[in-house]
Design a protein around this nucleic acid. Structure first.
Lengths: 145, 145
DNA sequence: CAAGATTGACCAATCAATCTTT
DNA sequence: AAAGATTGATTGGTCAATCTTG
């Protein structure tokens, strides 16, 4: 006979999805309300910017952003379409591409940050203290793997 | 000048979305792997079943599931299509509908539970102890609102 | 054949408009 | 007008097939 899941576990799981859904909703609403692109654009632009002038390969970005290959491909397509990145063929590996951020891309990422940051403050810092944030991180890290 | 978000906060936020994304992915993969419907169907079927023989109104379900009205409408449409619920006009309020679970719906919900439950055990109980689950719940509840 | 990447087709979520009844 | 609910059109995510190069 199957073992039963603990009530504690279900309670933790429920609050986990609700907390993440609500946080995401708050952030996306703040960005949309300021006529800014979605959070996924921020994450991608940040990684591409951090890669520096050499740019980054899609398969590396995919690992960093935890996106499937086709998801990365579609996101990069939209970012390029918007003029925030440039995509060039990769010297030395004819299969690959290299992604680099543009000045417009850098500006947009910088414009998004204050809105994103303020949402995080509203969601987290108004509700939990510094010690609790650390505890949360320590426990969730083990679930996030 | 804007205040800066704490590093602790960003770390907690990052582990929060990663943990919830990974948990969801594990559960959905287990369900799909057993040829069962997605998690959202389970949540809806459970609420409709709990409502008993009188059924439940979509606008109540919407609150319980934290779904937008159109999301509820589309989900109920799929459940009815699959034969897991029946939708009837509401006596006493000509605008509304009443949703009731069918025997097939009950069976499907019961079939999904062991798979769902085992995923929760794998994700949570293998990685955090009972006390940590409680701490997690206590902290996340304040963020989930 | 593997790896890197894209794309057509399909499904699900979202937005805005709509409809009926209160 | 507001509440309950649905729907056409669009967007975004997912699957499987595809293409090119290593």
């Amino acid at each position: 006979m199957d073992p039963n899941v603990r009530k504690n576990t279900v309670a933790a799981w429920t609050s986990l999805i609700r907390a993440s859904a609500r946080s995401l909703a708050v952030i996306e609403a703040a960005l949309a309300g300021a006529n800014l692109p979605p959070l996924s654009w921020y994450d991608a632009l940040l990684e591409i910017e951090k890669a520096g002038p050499d740019g980054i390969r899609p398969y590396v970005l995919k690992e960093r952003l935890l996106l499937p290959q086709y998801g990365t491909s579609r996101l990069l397509g939209r970012l390029a379409q918007a003029g925030y990145i440039i995509r060039t063929p990769c010297d030395g590996d004819g299969r690959g591409h290299v992604e680099k951020i543009t000045d417009e891309g850098r500006r947009m990422r910088q414009a998004m940050w204050p809105v994103y940051q303020q949402s995080l403050i509203d969601i987290f810092e108004d509700n939990i203290d510094e010690k609790e944030a650390e505890i949360l991180h320590d426990i969730l890290r083990r679930i996030a793997n």
